[in-house]
Amino acid sequence: MNEHFTEKESLELIGKMINSAKNNLQKGLGNVFLLWGYLVASISLVIFILLIILPGETSHYSFFLWSLMAIGAPVHIRMIKKMEQQQLVKTYIDRIMDFVWIAFTISIVTVIAGILITTMLVLPSFTEVEPGFEFLRWFPWTFVTPFMLCLYGFALFVSGKAYQFKPLVTGGIICWIATLVLLISFHNPHLLKIQELVLFISVIFGFIIPGHLLRKKENSHV
């Protein structure tokens, strides 16, 4: 590089270099979206099918399949470690996005932990459930999916806007619409099936499609 340059060239250089780090997508981000996308999509689809084919209350045991989500955690940690090793630059956007997704995870864990405590401990131990109100034992769970989808929408929308990646923004909007659909379906006797189906569709648009497109974009940057 030339040591002698004008003040105008100097400003141009600053602008060019600042832009070089902008929108720098972390390599491997697409895989993280695909991991959770395919995991949630498969579990919700299997539960949806089980809810249709299994008789009555027995079908509700299929919800225990959600515990399989735990297998995503060690894979996720390995992927993040690999990403950190490969990451050549860390921008402020990367750091803020890390916190957005950490806050997203903490919010979901908090809600699930709260509902677990109330349905497994508080309600059975301390509350006399009157006949006709037994639904209280499972009803709080029906709020998990709309809450989760609303948070998905939030995190996807923010990520999409921050990285200027439209498929994530679209995915976020679809998740918000899905939340609305679920919240106005509480009267429907098929609410549980609707929830699993809507979750399956939302995850395809919110995680799987953007995940594949992110991978394509990451590879085209190399």
Binding site: M17, I18, D94
Partner: peptide, 26 residues
Amino acid sequence: SQLRLAVMSILISTEEADFVFIRENT
């Protein structure tokens, strides 16, 4: 100086940057 200014401009807009990233972009 072009190279040092380029380095500082990259570092100003990032939290941290790898030597390889700076070399490729400058």
